[in-house]
Design a protein around this nucleic acid. Structure first.
Lengths: 131, 131
DNA sequence: CCTTGACCTTCCAGTGACTGGAACCTTTAT
DNA sequence: ATAAAGGTTCCAGTCACTGGAAGGTCAAGG
C-alpha cells in the first residue's frame, strides 16, 4: 500500500503518518523503486492502534510505551493497566478543572442582562471587582 | 512599578507579560530612563483581568475581544454574554469528549487482569480486534 | 572601588502534535 | 502532450508560553 491508501484505511492523514515516522513513533517505512513509502498489513494495524489510542487522549509518548508493550509478548498486563488507570485519573482531573471553569463562567453570566445596555457584571468580575 | 512587581501583583510571570506585549494583547509599556518597563495601576488591573480570564479558559484571542469590550463604555452586555455562553458550550463539548474517553478506557481496563500474565484486552481492543 | 546578587533588557529556540504550503517527481488516464 | 492525482522533501506556522544565553542596571556590603 502507498501512504494515501494506508492513511484512508487507518483514519490518519498521510501527513501525520510521515510525522509519526519523523519522530520515531513508527519505524521508517519500506520504499519502492520510485521512492514511495510502502506499507504492509502490520503497518496498517499499528497505525490503527495509534489512531485509536490518540482518540482516547493518549499522548504520542504514552503510545510509544503502549506500542512497546503491544509488541512485547512477555509483557505483564499490569503494566498496561497502570498506564490506562493513570490516564483515567488524568482525564478526571481535566474534567474537574473544566467543571470549575464552567461553574464560574455560568455564575458570571447569571447576573448579566445580555441586552443593549453596557452594564456587565461579567467584565466587572473578570476585572476582580467582585473577587 | 517594574515588571517584576506587577508580575507578582497580577499573578502573571514577567516573561509572560513581555510575551503579551509582543503579541499585542497589551500596549507597549512605558519605559523609564534606564530602559525598564514601567507599569501603572491601570496596567495592573488589565493584567489581573487577563490572568483571571486565562484561568477560566479564554484564549488570548478571546481575551482581546473581552478587553476591547471592557474598555468600551458603550458596549452592549449581550456581546460579552455571547462570548461567555459560547465558552460554556465549548467547555461542555470538551467535558463530553473527556467523559467518552474515560468511559471507553474504563471499559477496557475492566477486563484486564492487571497481573503478571501477558494477556491484555486493553491492547487487543486498542488494536481494533474488539472494535 | 569592587563585588555580589537581584533585577532588568533582548533575542533565539523549544514545547506537542500536527498542518499548510512550496517546489518537485511519478503514475495514470485522456 | 497534458492534466490530475498521487507521491517526495523541507520549511514555517499554530498556541501560549518557557528556558536560556548574553548583557545592562541598581542597591548593599566590604
Amino acid at each position: 500500500m502507498n501512504i494515501g491508501e494506508v492513511a484512508t484505511q487507518a483514519g490518519v492523514p498521510a501527513k501525520t503518518i510521515r510525522y509519526y515516522e519523523s519522530v520515531g513513533l513508527i519505524p521508517a517505512a519500506a520504499r519502492r523503486g520510485n521512492g514511495y513509502r510502502s506499507y504492509s498489513q502490520t503497518d496498517l494495524h499499528t497505525l490503527r492502534f495509534i489512531h485509536r489510542a490518540r482518540e482516547l487522549g493518549f499522548s504520542v509518548a504514552e503510545i510509544e510505551d503502549l506500542l512497546a508493550l503491544w509488541r512485547n509478548k512477555r509483557r505483564k498486563s499490569q503494566a498496561v493497566k497502570a498506564i490506562a488507570l493513570a490516564k483515567i485519573a488524568e482525564i478526571e482531573r481535566k474534567i474537574a478543572a473544566l467543571e470549575t471553569m464552567k461553574r464560574t463562567i455560568r455564575h458570571l453570566t447569571a447576573h448579566c442582562h445580555g441586552d443593549a445596555r453596557p452594564d456587565c457584571p461579567i467584565l466587572d468580575d473578570l476585572a476582580g471587582d467582585g473577587g
